[in-house]
Design a protein around this nucleic acid. Sequence first.
DNA 1: AGCGCTTCTTGAACTAGATTAAGATTTTTC
DNA 2: GAAAAATCTTAATCTAGTTCAAGAAGCGCT
Lengths: 197, 197
Amino acid sequence: MEIQILIMHTELLAHIKRFVSLTPEEEKIVKGYVHTQDVKYKELVLKSGQVCDAYYFVVKGVLRMYTLTDNGTEHIVQFAIDNWWMSDYTSFDTQKPSLFSIQALEPTTVIVIDKKVQETLFQEVPKLERYFRLIFQRAYTATLMRVHFIFSSSGEARYHHFNNSFPEFVQRIPQYMLASYLGFTPEFLSKIRAKKI
Amino acid sequence: MEIQILIMHTELLAHIKRFVSLTPEEEKIVKGYVHTQDVKYKELVLKSGQVCDAYYFVVKGVLRMYTLTDNGTEHIVQFAIDNWWMSDYTSFDTQKPSLFSIQALEPTTVIVIDKKVQETLFQEVPKLERYFRLIFQRAYTATLMRVHFIFSSSGEARYHHFNNSFPEFVQRIPQYMLASYLGFTPEFLSKIRAKKI
DNA sequence: AGCGCTTCTTGAACTAGATTAAGATTTTTC
DNA sequence: GAAAAATCTTAATCTAGTTCAAGAAGCGCT
């Protein structure tokens, strides 16, 4: 068990070190402030209406973030797979209820930074400000690219593009969720697939 | 002129200080590394195909970031007004050509951080890492909310929502650009407006 | 191995929004 | 202040994608 946790933390530290260097002491501090959590299939780590009180780093598995519209339909805003962070950062900062829910689509292991330690951790390891500056920058530009794709290509083109870019991932999630992420109905996705094989 | 520039810089420093505290020395360093630039109506600060080599902070005016699709139609990915940063951060970091163009929609004044000084500036004033961490976090979550709106509401609903949220801004830009930003055609926007007055 | 639940498919009728094209209005320029 | 350019409107036709409904596969569970 101890060894297991160590390996988990190693994944996060390796990821951080892709962006900033860390001294052994800093590594130790980070390890001291985070913890791992196992999330069962279909379990929620955040439920809309509740306040988000952690950042989640996916070590293994898949999370989805989604909203419920008035008429009861779900809309997937984003997925997180290995080495991605997910949270409702606005709810986290303002401590107001979140519009979003975050759910595991597989048995998933996450590393957690809790609200109550986040500021202290960032003060003790200021390099994390830079690390997250770069993480948010990437997430932001990736989301802008997504807006660009939504506006400039048809649903069919978006499906093929996503399929070509992340073929392994498409295998792992139900098609109706992919449809929701791409912004159309499962029936329409079925039709696209029927055309071309 | 000197006074004018000082006022400009004050706007940026005031904005930074909404997120992090700055000592007088740090303020001085920041002032030393940035400069202002006046951008004429319709002038481009970034042209797609070129490498983006600066961050731009809008002091006064409006910028738009857009792409050209194969068939020649423009798609506006975002606007920047007073106190917003705009850049193609991916192109900036990788020094690869940008897909986007950035253009002024009014005579606009920006404060510029050039690529060649950015790393040095951040090293000398590490608080800027935190500042931009928070800036990117907001930009990221705002863009996620936009994706949510695109998927969960009709074009008409999006128009009314935008109109209610930013009535003064809607006055300042041509309607066909608003249509492009909201993801539909100018003709459709005309129809929406005809319905309701 | 069979029952129940979740996911996927197909087809027919429908609609939000695109496209095309022409004219009207407003803004800019000399 | 008239001509040119840019923006906005209207209407007819068309299409990508939705909705509804029903059946077919797939898959986890005892």
